[in-house]
Structures are given as C-alpha cells and as structure tokens.
C-alpha cells in the first residue's frame, strides 16, 4: 500500500509539474521534481523498494520529458544509484546539504542527458543550450526536492506510525 501511494504521489507531482510548466511557461527554471523524487527514494527507502518506485517514476518522467525514449529514465536510474552509493560515505541529514545535493543532482542529470544526446544526435549546438539553460535550471532544483520530500515523508510517517501501533496492540 505504501509503495502504491508513494508511486501515485510521485506520478501526480510529475504530471502537475508538466501542467504548470505548460500553463505558466516556466521555461528556464524548472523545479526538477524527478530529481527530488530520486533523492528521496535513494536516501529514505530500502534499496529494493526504492528501486522499484524509482524505476516506475523514472519512466513516467521519461514519458513526460519529450526526449528520445529512455534518455531521462537512464539518467535518473544512474542518479538513483550514485546517491545510494555516496550516501554510505556522506551524510545527507541536513536540509541545506540535501538542497545542495538536489542542485548537483539536477546539474548531473542535465550533463548525463547532454552526453547521451551528443552521442545519439551528434549536434554540438546542444552544448550552448546546456550552458545557457539546462545547467542554470539546476539552481531551482531545491524547490522540486521541497515539493517531493514533504508529501513522501508524510506517507512514510503514516505507515510507520501505523506499524508501531499494530506492534503495541
């Protein structure tokens, strides 16, 4: 139930991001909800559960992204595993550190996408887009993290509370 609720919430946030970007023409500074989701799932979830949720949400982001199929899903999967691996050595407990992490993650995602696209499309003019728009857009990634972290941690809290109560009984 928790997995379903987490996926549905992530799904809804991704769709809302797509609608808001379309309605208000927020072109340059995107909230990067998908990055926020990957950070939460990598840091707060058990690997298998987080992995399943991350896979489904990465593919949803891929379907909404307008990119060639698989580009965004692959980028997000790489990000999920990188955070997971680095979390064993680095502490991501502070809110400020997590906000900084979201900027790094969004910038990394844009870089991964650029590299994949350079290989697939071979268009060097994409580097200008990367430097002028994609990379600066990472600065607003903490918004996406804030939007995702709150609802998802509430869902987890709800189920943990329930679990504790059941144990007491």
């Amino acid at each position: 139930m928790r997995i379903v609720l987490t996926i549905l919430t992530g799904f809804l946030l991704l769709v809302l991001e797509s609608v808001f970007v379309g309605t208000f023409h927020i072109d340059t500074f995107l909230p990067h909800v998908a990055c926020g989701l990957m950070i939460y799932l990598a840091l707060q979830k058990e690997l298998f559960e987080g992995g399943i949720e991350a896979t489904l949400l990465a593919w949803t982001a891929d379907l909404l992204g307008g990119a060639p199929p698989g580009v965004i899903a692959l980028g997000l999967a790489l990000i999920f595993f990188t955070i997971r691996l680095t979390a064993q050595r680095l502490s991501y407990r502070s809110v400020l550190v997590r906000a900084a992490l979201s900027i790094v993650v969004a910038a990394a995602l844009q870089t991964i996408m650029l590299l994949i696209l350079l290989v697939v499309l071979g268009d060097l003019s994409l580097i200008a887009t990367y430097l002028l728009a994609a990379l600066p857009s990472a600065l607003t990634a903490p918004i996406g993290l804030f939007l995702t972290w709150g609802p998802l941690s509430r869902i987890d809290g709800l189920f943990q509370q329930r679990h504790k109560t059941l144990l007491k009984e």
Binding site: L47, G51, A54, G70, A77
Partner: peptide
C-alpha cells in the same frame, strides 16, 4: 532480486535508447 532490479533499471532504458535510434517512435505500452 537486487541484481535483477539494478539490471532492469540501467539496461532497459539503455536498450530502449539504442533501439529507438533508428525508429524514434514509442512502443505500444508507452
């Protein structure tokens, strides 16, 4: 389950990307 998950998460998008190079359309499930 973990190696299967890791493989699915990384290989599936890579495979999709490679296969879509000649045919940029989405598959029926997508």
């Amino acid at each position: 389950r973990l190696p299967i998950l890791v493989t699915a998460m990384l290989v599936l998008p890579m495979l999709t990307l490679v296969l879509s190079r000649g045919n940029p359309g989405r598959n029926p499930v997508d």
